[in-house]
Write a protein that binds this DNA or RNA. Structure first.
Lengths: 225, 225
DNA sequence: GTAGTATTTGTAAAAGTAATAAAGAATTAT
DNA sequence: ATAATTCTTTATTACTTTTACAAATACTAC
């Protein structure tokens, strides 16, 4: 799950990043609306965490931009200004949730989960299911039938990404962007992703499950029946 | 329970912190209204202990700010000036209680309890039970079966936090935030938490109990059957 | 079909990270 | 002062992630 944090307060941002990274999010951080636009143009984020008071433009400006350009990210507005006025503006403008400073970081985590769950048709439970495979999104526990499979973070993230994009071909580059973030890796060196896929496949098969990942030669991989 | 002490008198503040920490509160301390505002913007406190005479602005200024911004903390005003005038101003301005210097520290403790109990309606659920483990929240006594286990404050707080969040994965960062407060520790240095967990586990097991804390590699710990 | 090339897969090991443990220093309580 | 608790430091072990390279497989052009 990839987040873009738009926040100019250094200390708060550092805390948020440290916490959210531990909670298994890919966090990218910019301090201005201008930079945020650039990032949103180039990359894809599940959620934008948007402060309203920023050095160049108001966060509401960015919110408008996101909605006008059909950018697919959810938006959670983060603001010190707790006035009803702002709340209404934010939600009318299409933000998906609103949290006022100060907030406990675990609450932010809950809201991110809530916002991203809404459109994935699944129930409000934190359980992702595909045939005999079920995944507890909180504890990273995966079951194949009744058998528990312990996954590493990368394997877990990979599988969630696949199931959320079933029947779609995912290139190694796309996988790298989504699971490792934009900064971290150059896209010419993504072969190692296969190792994680291999480990995932092996664990599922060893537990008696089906390997739903088809290799599309030259293009990528596809999770399919 | 987290407190913000706004007090510029070094010695008094040190005394209060020493006492309140002993009583198992998380205390954070600033000396000016300006710094207090910053803290209140970033973090969440159950109670603000607010001196009126401060170097930059009056405490009443901060009280106003708190109320105008719908900050959720209770406010107890602490002032040497016990003139009726100030009392009225403070309570009209929305403070929840008022105490005049000098005061016995245990009285402050009582008032904090009174102020925080008001909205958490039930003050009687003082016993936390999980299978063979029971915890008296007042006396901090813990029993495994019939055997009494003496816990340190940190171990006690840790266990209460776990049981109140059973079946949820708690990262070290989340634990640090909850048990040590936002300000005290940077979230990149939270490894020492494990020491307290280790001690807790050992004490429970030595008393014949079950270790309900499961390690979720890379994520955190989970209290579960 | 076959040769040549590109891509994927498999193996192994190195590098990096996290969990655990124990011991000592610093702080706090008695 | 002494003991207990909390925090830091360091070491060990276990696990995860990445890299390097060789083998196998799939595609393309002839």
């Amino acid at each position: 799950m990839k987040l873009l944090l738009v926040e100019d307060h250094q200390e708060l941002a550092a805390n948020m990043i440290s916490f959210l990274t531990q909670e298994n999010y890919i966090c990218e951080w910019v301090k201005t609306v201008t930079l945020a636009k650039e990032m949103l143009e180039m990359f894809e984020y599940d959620v934008v965490l948007l402060d309203l008071t920023l050095p160049d433009y108001s966060g509401l400006h960015l919110l408008e931009y996101i909605k006008q350009n059909d950018i697919n990210s959810k938006v959670i507005i983060i603001s010190a200004q707790n006035s009803l006025d702002y709340k209404i503006k934010g939600l009318d403008g299409g933000s998906d949730d609103y949290i006022t400073k100060p907030f406990p970081l675990p609450e932010l985590h809950s809201r991110i989960k809530a916002v991203t769950r809404r459109n994935s048709s699944n129930s409000k439970d934190d359980l992702l299911v595909y045939n005999e495979i079920s995944i507890d999104l909180n504890s990273m526990e995966c079951k194949v039938g009744e058998q528990v499979v312990v996954l590493t973070k990368k394997e877990f993230n990979l599988m969630v990404y696949f199931i959320n994009n079933k029947n779609r071909v995912l290139s190694k580059q796309a996988i790298a962007l989504h699971l490792w973030g934009d900064y971290t890796y150059n896209l010419d060196n993504v072969d190692f992703i296969y190792q994680h896929l291999k480990n995932l496949r092996k664990k599922i098969i060893d537990a008696g499950g089906t390997d739903y990942v088809k290799t599309i030669y030259g293009l990528g991989y596809k999770w399919t029946e």
